[in-house]
């Protein structure tokens, strides 16, 4: 069975290491914050200028001056820091953020990502995504393996305008975990009950399949 959004987020959270500073994009990546293992500590960075983002506030805690990069009201955890946008992107562009997790429309075998623009349709802007993919040490893309029409989002070459080049090394989809290297996708795990054949059929770019592909463990 293909994973739900929550299950993708659970699998993402397994990647976090104790002491990581992590930036989570809007959507599935944000859900990963709910599944951080209890025995480790991670600090969430929000690129509008908050390191140590906490949960949404109660009605009593609500504060118009306290938002995240998605413009939602949030709180700060104990030990958080708040700073200006140039400082925030110095952390990101300087490679100080350990992990970035973001969504995408397309990823290709060269590690290129397209996530911000669909010509003549979606032209809202890239926000901080281009800075994040150019700066983070470790980037994970989360997305469905194929779009709702069944077209693969894992391509030999991206067709949409790019967000960044040669920057994606790991993808977690509703069907699989894949590494991007040597101009190919390397299948490393599959979702429980999903066959290698299904993954192969929904991967348009070159796919390398090892002899044994373990199922994801939850």
């Amino acid at each position: 069975m293909a994973l739900s959004r929550e299950q993708i987020a659970m699998r993402v959270a397994q990647e976090f290491q104790d002491g990581d500073y992590v930036n989570l994009g809007i959507g599935i990546p944000t859900l990963a914050a709910n599944y951080v293992p209890a025995d480790i500590q991670v600090m969430l960075q929000s690129e509008n200028g908050l390191l140590g983002m906490g949960p949404n506030p109660t009605e009593e805690q609500l504060d118009a001056d306290m938002i995240n990069a998605g413009k939602e009201t949030v709180t700060a955890v104990t030990g958080a820091s708040i700073f200006n946008s140039a400082e925030s992107f110095a952390m990101i562009r300087g490679g100080h953020v350990d992990f970035t997790v973001l969504g995408a429309f397309e990823v290709d075998v060269s590690g290129n990502i397209a996530s911000w623009m669909i010509p003549n349709k979606l032209i809202k802007g890239m926000g901080g995504a281009m800075d994040l993919v150019a700066g983070a040490k470790n980037i994970i893309v989360t997305m469905t393996h194929a779009d709702k029409h069944g077209n693969s989002k894992l391509l030999q070459q991206c067709t949409l305008p790019l967000t960044g080049v040669n920057c994606i090394t790991r993808i977690i989809t509703d069907l699989a975990v894949l590494e991007v290297k040597n101009q190919a996708f390397y299948l490393s795990e599959r979702a429980p009950g999903v066959s290698v054949e299904e993954i192969q059929a929904k991967t348009a770019g070159e796919l390398v399949v090892p002899e044994h592909v373990p199922e994801m463990q939850f």
Binding site: E47, A86, F89, I92, I123, M126, D131
Partner: peptide, 13 residues
């Protein structure tokens, strides 16, 4: 003129 957020901050800085 759509400009990446960090680039925009740095342009002003």
């Amino acid at each position: 003129e759509l400009t990446p957020q960090g680039t925009l901050a740095e342009k002003m800085r």
